[in-house]
């Protein structure tokens, strides 16, 4: 970002805040990720976009289309000529029906819309757990992304990562982040909703582990705090989209068989990373009891001021299809 664009955005952000206060909108949460661009989108829509959108009952692509329309379309977030990163969960060498990775149809649709909105390029990657090429291919994401006009980027080598500082973090004060994230204009976080043996649940916040090179550090130094620390990254995802079309209820995050998978047919979308995860976790509680206080990184994230767990106070839009 050069000085001119920086100044511009500071001015624009200031203006947005003023507009917000005059409009007597209740701003319950500090929305760090609120950008000038997003405000423009809302203004174009003529209404105030919801804080959180929850959709049920459609196909992954259709649910995304409904939800993004509530925010004024993808062009609210993605501008012409921008470099975009879409970061799904591609952690495992699993086929889509086993719900180990984000739904390829959803990822494909997001990439397609970003391209249609005039993005210069859309890059997709994940630092996988299983051998990366098998993950990219067998998850169906490689094919879906390429078909939609996006690019898959490798993340298998340390040289793709650059170290940054995390000044607001409690434990993990620095991390090596994938260059695609550091070099892009905007990025979209697209996790899949899964049970997780260690972190209890894996959703938007946990998905940020896939942009970091050394994941052992998280496990060795207090997983729940490190996940929240990672989310204090300056360059936050513009949007978090939790894929709950298929939900892994047990044996996660890898899963043993199709018996671990429940058909959720839902999707949650928000700029607030803590709120969207709270909503998804509450949805998950209908499948299996999972106390929110056990999912430590949610409270830790709230303490960092990354968002709110109190979703009842938010402007939530519920859509059934």
């Amino acid at each position: 970002m050069d000085r001119r664009t920086f100044l511009k955005s500071v001015v624009a952000a200031g203006a947005t805040l003023v507009v917000k206060t005059i409009g007597a909108t209740t701003v319950l949460t500090e929305r760090f990720e609120q950008t000038a661009d997003a405000a423009e989108g809302e203004a174009a829509l003529g209404t105030v976009a919801p804080d959180l959108v929850a959709v049920m009952g459609g196909t992954p692509a259709a649910m995304f289309q409904k939800a993004i329309a509530e925010f004024g379309g993808i062009s609210t977030f993605v501008k012409k000529g921008q470099k975009v990163v879409v970061k799904p969960n591609i952690g495992w060498d699993k086929t889509p029906d086993l719900a180990g990775n984000t739904n390829p149809e959803l990822v494909g649709e997001i990439v397609k819309q970003c391209m249609d909105a005039g993005a210069k390029e859309v890059v997709v990657f994940d630092n996988t757990c299983d051998e990366w090429q098998k993950c990219y291919k067998n998850s169906g994401i490689d094919q879906a992304v390429k078909k939609a006009g996006g690019r898959m980027m490798p993340a298998n080598n340390e040289s793709y990562y650059r170290e940054i500082k995390l000044p607001r973090a409690k434990i993990m004060k620095k991390a090596k982040i994938h260059q695609a994230i550091l070099d892009c204009d905007v990025w979209i976080n697209v996790p899949v909703l899964k049970n997780h043996g260690g972190a209890k649940m894996t959703m938007s916040m946990k998905n940020l582990m896939g942009i970091v090179w050394d994941r052992r550090y998280f496990h060795n130094n207090g997983l729940q705090q490190c996940i929240a620390d990672m989310c204090t990254l300056d360059k936050k995802p513009a949007l978090n989209i939790v894929d709950a079309y298929r939900v892994m209820k047990d044996n996660g995050p890898r899963g043993k068989s199709a018996a671990d998978v429940v058909s959720g047919k839902a999707l949650f979308m928000s700029r607030d990373i803590v709120a969207v995860d709270t909503a998804a976790a509450k949805f998950f509680n209908q499948i299996r009891t999972m106390p929110l206080e056990d999912i430590g990184h949610l409270a830790n994230g709230q303490a960092h001021g990354l968002g709110t767990m109190n979703i009842d106070k938010l402007n939530v839009k519920r859509i059934r299809m």
Binding site: H196, G198, A199, H219, N251
Partner: peptide, 20 residues
């Protein structure tokens, strides 16, 4: 040792021979 969450081993186990 640290009374902190981890579960990395179970995460990677394909048969859940290591289960949390």
């Amino acid at each position: 040792k640290n009374e902190a969450s981890c579960g990395a081993c179970s995460e990677h186990c394909p048969t859940q021979a290591v289960k949390m």
